[in-house]
Design a binder for these strands. Structure first.
Lengths: 175, 175
DNA sequence: GGTATAGTTGTAATAGTATAACATGGTCAA
DNA sequence: TTGACCATGTTATACTATTACAACTATACC
């Protein structure tokens, strides 16, 4: 295979690399790993990974790009699921609440979480050329944000941190 | 007046306070200051602060909340401007490009920039109770984000950093 | 097993946000 | 005053998201 392995067999630490989306990797493993983790997590919480939810997650996991709700909906409809917006939005909301997917507000689209289960307040790097979306560790970023908030007595309950720009490959190609 | 003055006469440093939106202040000065700066800035850049643009900025400056495009549009229409979406979106795009307004992606709405002209990559604190939006200094936040990006060779060209939560006042009232 | 319950999905209708494309009109400089 | 450029007006449409209600399914409890 032409892929550079970005992981080993235990816990897929490579999948926590901030540049996962931008680097060649065994995406099949990437998908399977995330999906497996998701199922375990949902079961552990006493919730149900229904067919619609699982299928939506699978669709999101196909790519490291953000996918619009209506693109997912069309896929679902073609496969015999309901073809009205609530079908997909409910699944997406569920996945987001459970930390299995993230909403990329800048794109009005969604992307699968690449390391579900780990407590994380992610930030995203969105390449304007190839549209890949990398989920970067945002511990430092989130810390800085909370520091500012603390100064004014503001309690941060949730945040969205997104950077638009260009990934290394695309910048190289452009130059 | 019942307002605590949050500024002095030269440059309105108070208007750079991260908690401006959340603290009582002379909002009239706040507005006038931002508007004045905006006009100077636009002129200096050889651009035109047209009636529509100015009116949109004024409307955004009325409150420290984010305002939806269609709310602005209704106001414009009631005042004799065009009543079609492009009218307001063009003005908002212009203001955003010039750093005079910011898009709050989490709310699909817009807010006036409180210290135009200063180079800044703002972050926003959005109170879920009172809907006030504070523009907080994001130098540290932006720095952290760029540090992460640098690690993977990603070039940050723009960012949106928004925190949803509760301001000090609202938290106090809730307790 | 039967049945109440909560949760999930299906469906219809509608609300809200944003852009493309083209026509019109104003401003400024040569 | 003509031409170029920019801004605005207008029509139409695309895209994103939610409300409300009906039907169904799994589960737990009796």
């Amino acid at each position: 295979m032409g892929w550079k392995m970005a992981h080993d067999d235990q816990g897929c630490p490579g999948c926590e690399a901030p540049d996962l989306a931008f680097s060649r990797h065994d995406h099949g493993h990437c998908q399977a790993d995330a999906l497996g983790r998701a199922e375990v997590l949902i079961a552990a919480r006493g919730l149900r990974m229904t067919p619609v939810r699982q299928r939506v997650l699978e669709i999101l996991l196909e790519t490291h790009r953000a996918v619009g709700a209506y693109v997912v909906l069309d896929r679902l409809a073609a496969e015999g699921f309901g073809n009205q917006p609530p079908v997909v939005y409910r699944a997406l909301d569920f996945l987001e609440e459970q930390g299995l997917a993230h909403r990329i507000r800048r794109l009005n689209a969604f992307t699968a979480c690449m390391h579900p289960g780990e407590a994380h307040a992610p930030s995203f790097l969105i390449c304007r050329s190839c549209d890949l979306v990398a989920e970067a560790p945002a511990k430092a970023v989130r810390g800085a944000l909370e520091a500012v908030a603390l100064m004014v007595g503001f309690t941060v309950e949730g945040s969205n941190i997104e950077a638009m720009g260009q990934c290394a490959d695309c910048r190289g190609r452009a130059a």
